[in-house]
Design a binder for these strands. Structure first.
Lengths: 201, 201
DNA sequence: TATAATTTTGACCGGTTGGTTAAATTATAA
DNA sequence: TTATAATTTAACCAACCGGTCAAAATTATA
């Protein structure tokens, strides 16, 4: 699977991402990353010095994208209902493109709870701005009053959960892979509907 | 931390559960479990033969409790709104008592997606029963129509997510541990409200 | 074309870790 | 009290795994 166009360093990053995201830091073997990248294992150390630094390179790429995207969505110049609808659409699209990211994030949180803190701080998400908008639109009767910390967590939970719990959901509701894909596709309108109805004035 | 009243085997199980649940299979060292249990490491093999069998003992205890409880709640002789309210209350109570279980489940799903299948099958959850009740009560105008596979996943997602994403949520919304505890406590009424409003006829 | 720099490799090292074992200790049964 | 069974332990083993290295190969530069 060597890609002649990519530099070796980049091939390593791609392979490392693929393996770390599924197996986590402890579960990943350097030899497996090397196999994925189609290179000798020593090269991993040549370019990244250690397993931990390689993981950090993968991790920081994930974390660096997570929160800025979230902030951008939350600060969009939109009415609250449109904003939430837009957030749900974009967030689900990102999840479809990278379905293992949520599990990776949760795994990393488990073994290193402070790992995301600097990326959160750097992204500069301003929850008070959203709360302000919610309060203003609740005062106008557009939606009911609700705390931002509940609303945002609810939306992300609804989006993320079917990806992290896929084997369980698929089995309980007896869906094959195709049916589950259809289910995931239906989630967009389902979540938008669920959320908008729940905050109706 | 040796407990004179407990058998050695049980002490091992308790310690193994504590460590495996937080660190997962790959991240756990047998010596650490032995240290937690206050015993010599060789005893782990004497009683459980291998790390994998010890993990399986812990895992099966978790899995054996997860789905039967869920089924019981879903088949309670209650109206749908009362049933969902009851489900949320009991589910959150269980999560407060075992806050690391969701992360453990997700970690285990990641490394072994088929691990829960036999426990799901054994629990015999009948989604069609719930769907039937939803359809009947929607026909009577008690709630709006909604697919069981969306409703159940939504509820579990809302309950579970603040536990698995705690460090991130805590940091984005700038809460200390005490404030987060209050936040978790508020989740019950928040989720009940959110869900019941979203399925209102 | 020669030399230098960079990249790559196979082989190896040392620490970690799951697992084993013989002996010692404790518990139980006869 | 003695024999046997169960439990426990310190020490050890072997495989695994992250990391290193000298040499070779390749690429770049003078």
């Amino acid at each position: 699977m060597t890609n002649p166009g990519e530099s070796t360093e980049n091939q390593i990053l791609i392979a490392a991402r693929e393996v770390f995201i599924v197996k986590g830091f402890e579960g990943t073997r350097m030899q497996e990353i090397a196999d994925h990248a189609g290179i000798n294992k020593a090269l991993l150390h040549y370019y990244f010095r250690s397993k931990e630094k390689l993981f950090e390179a993968v991790f920081s790429e994930v974390a660096a994208n997570l929160f800025p995207a979230m902030r951008q969505l939350l600060e969009a110049e939109l009415g609250i209902r449109e904003k939430l609808t837009f957030f749900i659409k974009i967030y689900l699209k990102a999840l479809h493109e990278n379905p293992f990211i949520p599990s990776f994030v949760i795994n990393t949180l488990n073994s290193n709870p402070e790992s995301f803190l600097k990326y959160i701080k750097k992204a500069g998400i301003k929850p008070l701005l959203l709360q302000k908008q919610i309060d203003e639109e609740a005062a106008r009767g557009v939606i009911r009053a609700i705390k931002a910390e509940h609303l945002v967590v609810n939306i992300i939970a609804l989006c993320v959960f079917p990806f992290v719990a896929r084997p369980i959901v698929q089995n309980i509701f007896e869906m094959n892979d195709e049916e589950y894909q259809a289910y995931l596709s239906a989630r967009e309108s389902e979540i938008i509907d669920f959320v908008l109805k729940s905050i109706q004035a």
